[in-house]
Simulated scan of single mutants.
Amino acid sequence: MLGVFSSSIVSPPDELVAAGSRTPSPKITSDALVNRFVQSNSSAISMQIGDFVQLAYSHSKESAVLPRSFAVKDDIFCLFEGSLDNLGSLRQQYGLAKSANEVMLVIEAYKALRDRAPYPPNHVVGHLEGSFAFIVFDKSTSTLFVATDQVGKVPLYWGITADGYVAFANDADLLKGACGKSLASFPQGCFYSTTVGGLRSYENPKNKITAVPATEEEIWGAKFMVEGSAVVAATE
């Protein structure tokens, strides 16, 4: 799955901008990145949302136990990969039908977060148990919300394209050729919200997240880590 967002939606992380400046390497534009994804994934679907957002996904090579799904409701778009172990209880909590799948659950959870402000976003994501990564874009408010599970069972990466767009994808190789050294693994157990103003840990919401510049030999430009945690948020 792939989500590409202009700087009018998402401010490019300073650490990834700096990494790309330290070690310049080939990049491509956001449009070229989406085209590359579509061409390299059979039956890929891509969509343009307004002038500043593109989403794409494919079921090609997906895991049987960690499927990918897409849904849109009330101008809220969601890409989801993985599965939730407590989907049944969450359906009851949010008043959803038994037929509701993970991607619909995440949309409802996001709506609850948005409409109950200032409801803590870490509470919403913290209730999700399982293996997952998701990208939510709310067109009505131009809000982005991205999160991964606590142990990184579903990988997610982010980087900056040649034209300054922030790209999120589950395929590191796809972003390597598009973002150069402005690339990192999205830290596990964390969420990114344009509403709260950046990256947060939902396991340890009071702990600061820092980015450690990577060495020249590594493919990553930086490694994001939650302070006070022994777990490194990016591995090669």
Score class of each variant (00 low, 15 high):
Leu79Ala: 06
Val146Trp: 02
Ala117Val: 00
Ala19His: 05
Ala97Thr: 07
Thr194Gln: 09
Leu156Val: 08
Tyr94Trp: 10
Asp138Val: 02
Asn35Ser: 15
Tyr110Trp: 08
Gly95Val: 03
Tyr57His: 11
Ser30Ala: 15
Ser63Val: 04
Ala172Glu: 03
Leu33Asn: 11
Val226Glu: 00
Phe37His: 07
Ser193Phe: 05
Ala32Trp: 06
Leu175Cys: 03
Val226Pro: 03
Ser140Met: 09
Asn204Lys: 14
Val212Thr: 14
Gly159Glu: 01
Pro120Glu: 00
Ala64Val: 09
Val231Cys: 01
Val65His: 14
Tyr110Met: 04
Phe134Trp: 09
Asn86Lys: 10
Leu66Lys: 11
Asp85Trp: 01
Thr23His: 10
Arg22Val: 11
Tyr119Gln: 06
Tyr202Gln: 05
Leu113Asp: 01
Val38Asp: 10
Leu79Met: 08
Asn41Ile: 07
Phe37Asn: 05
Ser43Phe: 15
Phe191Ile: 06
Ser46Val: 13
Gly3Glu: 07
Thr194Ala: 06
Pro213Cys: 15
Arg68Ala: 11
Gly180Arg: 01
Ile45Leu: 15
Phe80Asp: 02
Glu102Arg: 04
Ser69Cys: 00
Leu183Asn: 01
Glu108Met: 10
Ala44Asn: 12
Gln39Lys: 15
Lys206Leu: 13
Pro187Thr: 08
Phe77Arg: 01
Pro205Leu: 10
Thr215Leu: 12
Phe80Cys: 06
Leu16Val: 10
Leu144Trp: 03
His127Lys: 11
Ser25Tyr: 05
Asn204Glu: 14
Val231Asn: 03
Trp158Thr: 02
Asp85Glu: 13
Val196Phe: 07
Ser6Gly: 13
Ala109His: 02
Ser140Pro: 04
Asp51Ala: 15
Leu66Gly: 00
Val231Arg: 03
Val106Gly: 02
Ser60Cys: 14
Leu33Thr: 10
Glu216Met: 09
Ser131Met: 12
Leu156Ser: 02
Asn204Trp: 07
Gly126Glu: 00
Ala222Asn: 01
Tyr192Glu: 02
Ile28Cys: 14
Tyr94Leu: 13
Phe168Cys: 03
Ala147Leu: 05
Gly228Phe: 11
Phe168Ser: 01
Leu174Arg: 06
Ser43Met: 09
Asn204His: 12
Ala117Arg: 09
Gly197Asp: 13
Ser30Thr: 15
His59Gly: 04
Lys73Thr: 06
Tyr119Lys: 06
Thr235Trp: 00
Glu203Lys: 12
Arg116Val: 02
Val103Tyr: 03
Arg36Pro: 07
Lys153Thr: 01
Ala97Ile: 05
